[in-house]
Amino acid sequence: MNTIHVAGGVGVADTAMASYDAALADANLHNYNLVAVSSVVPAEATVEAVPEAPDLGPAGNRLTVVEARRTIGPGDAVDFRESGRAGAEGAESKRAPRRRPDAVAGLGWATGPGPGLFYEVTGEDPEGVRDRIRAGLDSGADLRDWELPDRETRVETVAAEPDRYATAVVIAAYGESEPIL
């Protein structure tokens, strides 16, 4: 039987691409050429959550994945003066600080007899991401009229750092890598 490994990672660096590469390294998926596919789990596959992906073949190979990825940078901020609670008024709301949001990436999967589904979500709030994953899996199963009772979720969060980029990833890696040439 083929195994799909689900691994996550976070990275912080001086550029967006470097933070993504660091997040991939944290998941041990940085040495592959990732090829994204839609979110169907083949019927003959098993899905296994792992702390980091095992060795899936030589560096430079092609690896089929489903990926949730969120990168935030120095320009990303939430202004609580504009997005604060409803009804906030007066001097208190005018002094409300700006803050950098967290980068949150989540991947959920649902399996049962036959094929299954992955559902990927990104955002700034881990619980909100989890809620949207659950809703997406429910919707996808209903759309296909599939019974998918076995469900799991993996969410990665990284806090912003001043003047740096931060990336969170969760990746489902399908089997072993394959030569690209």
Rank of each mutant, 00 (worst) to 15 (best):
M1H: 12
I4L: 09
I4F: 08
H5K: 01
G8V: 09
G11C: 11
A13H: 01
A13D: 12
T15L: 05
M17Q: 14
M17R: 11
D21E: 14
A22G: 02
A23W: 02
L24R: 04
L24A: 03
D26E: 04
D26G: 11
A27V: 06
L29Y: 01
N31R: 15
N33L: 14
N33W: 11
L34W: 03
L34Y: 09
A36P: 05
A36I: 10
V37Y: 08
S38R: 13
S39I: 03
S39C: 08
V40G: 00
V41L: 09
V41K: 00
P42G: 04
A43I: 05
E44A: 12
V47I: 14
E48F: 01
A49C: 09
P54Q: 03
G57T: 05
G57S: 09
P58K: 11
P58H: 04
A59G: 11
N61R: 02
N61F: 13
T64N: 07
V65R: 00
A68Y: 03
R69W: 05
R70Y: 06
R70I: 00
I72R: 04
G73P: 01
G73Q: 02
V78H: 02
D79C: 12
F80S: 10
R81S: 11
E82N: 07
S83N: 06
R85L: 15
A86L: 15
A86K: 13
A86M: 13
A88L: 15
E89P: 00
G90W: 09
E92D: 14
P97F: 05
R98Y: 02
R99H: 08
R99C: 03
P101E: 05
P101D: 04
P101F: 08
D102N: 13
A103C: 09
A103H: 04
A103E: 02
A103Y: 01
G106D: 03
L107I: 10
W109S: 02
A110T: 02
G112V: 08
P113Q: 10
G114K: 08
G114Y: 08
P115N: 02
P115K: 03
Y119M: 04
Y119E: 06
Y119T: 07
E120P: 04
V121D: 05
T122E: 09
G123L: 10
E124V: 14
E127D: 15
G128S: 14
G128D: 13
V129A: 07
R130M: 10
I133G: 01
I133H: 06
G136R: 03
G136I: 12
S139N: 09
A141V: 07
A141T: 04
D142I: 06
R144Q: 11
D145Y: 03
D145E: 13
W146I: 04
E147H: 07
E147Y: 08
L148E: 00
D150F: 14
R154F: 05
V155L: 14
E156C: 05
E156R: 13
E156L: 15
T157R: 15
A159H: 15
A160Y: 04
A160S: 15
A160I: 08
E161K: 12
E161S: 10
P162M: 08
D163Y: 11
R164A: 11
Y165H: 14
A166K: 07
T167A: 06
A168S: 15
A168K: 03
V169Y: 03
V170R: 03
A172F: 01
A173D: 00
A173M: 08
Y174M: 11
Y174H: 11
Y174Q: 02
G175P: 06
I180R: 15
I180Q: 10
